[in-house]
Amino acid sequence: MTEPPRTVQSYIDQTPAWPDGTPTDFIPMTAMQWRIWLLAPAGKFFEGLVVFMTGVALPLIVKDFGLSPAEKGIVSAAPLAGIMVGALALGGLADIYGRHRMFVIEMVVFALFLTGLTWSPTYLWLVVYLFGVGLALGCDYPTAHLVISESIASKDRGKLVLSAFAFQAIGALVRTVVGFLILANLPRSGRGAGYMPPRSCRPSCWSWAGSRSATAGIG
């Protein structure tokens, strides 16, 4: 009876053995597997960075565009709405076009929308770009976990997939540091009401915060 062909996962799960033939108690990860694990959660990192950065920059955005309470709510919800739509409508594209290709496309789309966000001329474009950023991040939700799941041994898959979510918290922490540095260096308004961006600054200071994220995304 012929032995059925082995799957890719069976090779990944293959336990190495010592020179005397005794199998080891663990399956070491290769350099490529570590690289995949570090790159795949990039979407989670930028989600934490961009989404929470929007909250930090919201007072400056309101001042810059003169937003009403309703418009302020739409700006806050735009990236989250994009994430929801991207995950539901675009998440399955990785099964059609391949994990690697979609992962690259997502990061390119993310960088393009984020770059446009830093130069938003009007409130409408601001919402469009924020939604587009969320769309790319939402599309990355299933893709990133599939890339990790299909590249890691079954024994370590669960903890590495879950640990990818930690990158969201890391992005939020980076956002806190960047937001603090920006707000701490803004000039005070003439009325002494706190820190406000200079009128002559274009792109504005909140846009500068977004440009830092765009630079990281392109890099």
Rank of each mutant, 00 (worst) to 15 (best):
P4D: 03
P5K: 10
R6F: 08
R6H: 11
V8Q: 12
Q9C: 02
Q9E: 13
Y11I: 12
D13W: 08
Q14M: 14
T15Y: 08
P16V: 07
P16H: 07
A17H: 15
P19D: 07
D20R: 03
T22C: 01
D25N: 10
D25M: 04
F26W: 13
M29K: 01
T30N: 10
R35L: 15
A40Q: 10
P41L: 11
G43L: 10
V50T: 11
V50M: 03
F52N: 14
T54F: 02
A57F: 15
L58I: 03
V62F: 04
F65C: 06
P69K: 09
A70C: 00
E71H: 09
K72N: 13
G73C: 09
V75H: 05
V75N: 04
I83Y: 02
I83W: 02
A89I: 05
L90R: 06
G91H: 01
D95C: 01
D95Q: 08
I96R: 15
Y97K: 07
Y97W: 13
G98N: 07
R101V: 11
F103P: 01
I105K: 01
V108L: 14
V109P: 00
V109T: 11
F110Y: 14
L114W: 06
L117E: 04
L117G: 02
T118P: 00
S120A: 15
S120L: 11
Y123H: 12
V127G: 05
V133M: 06
V133D: 02
G134A: 02
A136F: 03
G138W: 05
P142D: 05
H145P: 06
L146H: 06
V147R: 04
I148S: 05
E150H: 01
S151W: 04
I152T: 13
A153D: 12
A153E: 07
S154T: 15
R157G: 02
R157E: 11
R157Q: 12
L160C: 04
V161F: 01
S163W: 12
Q168E: 02
Q168A: 14
G171S: 03
A172E: 06
A172K: 10
L173V: 14
V174S: 04
V174P: 04
V174W: 05
R175C: 13
R175Y: 02
R175N: 13
V177H: 02
V177F: 13
V177K: 03
V177T: 11
V177S: 04
G179P: 02
L181C: 06
I182L: 12
L183M: 10
N185A: 10
L186W: 05
L186D: 02
P187D: 09
P187Q: 08
R188H: 14
R188L: 13
S189Q: 10
S189R: 12
R191W: 07
A193F: 09
P198F: 13
R199E: 15
S200C: 03
S200V: 04
P203V: 04
C205R: 13
W206Q: 08
A209S: 13
S211L: 15
S213V: 15
A214I: 11
A216K: 04
